[in-house]
Design a protein around this nucleic acid. Sequence first.
DNA 1: TATGCACCCTGTAGCAACTACAGGGTCAAG
DNA 2: CTTGACCCTGTAGTTGCTACAGGGTGCATA
Lengths: 133, 133
Amino acid sequence: MKISEMAAATATNIETVRYYEKIGLLPAPARTGANYRSYGSDHLARLSFIRRARDLGFTLDQVRELLGLSDHRDRSCAAVDAIANTHLAEIDRKIADLQAMRGELSRMIGDCRQGTVADCLIIETLGPARLTQ
Amino acid sequence: MKISEMAAATATNIETVRYYEKIGLLPAPARTGANYRSYGSDHLARLSFIRRARDLGFTLDQVRELLGLSDHRDRSCAAVDAIANTHLAEIDRKIADLQAMRGELSRMIGDCRQGTVADCLIIETLGPARLTQ
DNA sequence: TATGCACCCTGTAGCAACTACAGGGTCAAG
DNA sequence: CTTGACCCTGTAGTTGCTACAGGGTGCATA
């Protein structure tokens, strides 16, 4: 299959497929006489794996590690589990950060009396440490 | 005050202060005879504003807009409110995305039986659409 | 006075993970 | 035989910084 077909099959941008090849995440495929990339089902499987992992928020480095591990089918999957757990902890941290932000932001918005900028509490809250409390 | 002092006062990296000046977020300050940047309290206020807004997750473009609005103290703060609400919606979307990710990831990890990679359900889940079920 | 050392300057390159060209070649249909 | 859709390479842009390299300045100490 050619690049446009594989890209479509995995909901990936064509340039992204070439990018994955360039950074060594996807092996270089065979070429046709006209120098077009020609992919097989193994490429498709690998790209699907990459996309699924990316969708779940793994970084490309983590994906690279997971791909490396998945090639050693006889080893313990403890390392795989460790990467996944590290990532889970990162997600939890991000969620906590965003929820803290959300709380402060929505409090600011709730205080807004829709007056002029001069007495806008959003602007005021963002300002430097105020002397008046 | 010099750049190191203002950076310290706002918990900002010195290079970041110069970066904000370069992209026009912070006005260029006066210079000493030795060509050192010399800041006043207005710069400090502005940088504090930028940092607070960044901490709350506003993009630099949003910060730029908020700063522009805060200069017109007689106008309605509806535009300010709109930016804040847009940002709140973005945060909510990110939280929802992360929570969906978290659910799928923790299910994957929960299924892991700590065997070999060959029957690792994490790797399997990441693989291409399986024929079995 | 010399000599460190900490600080300041400019300008450029790097990070993640792509995306968007520019400038060219190829292929199939009408 | 030309038109349009596709493919190629290579480079530059995105966001929000951070990290040099290669130089100048200011102050304390020997």
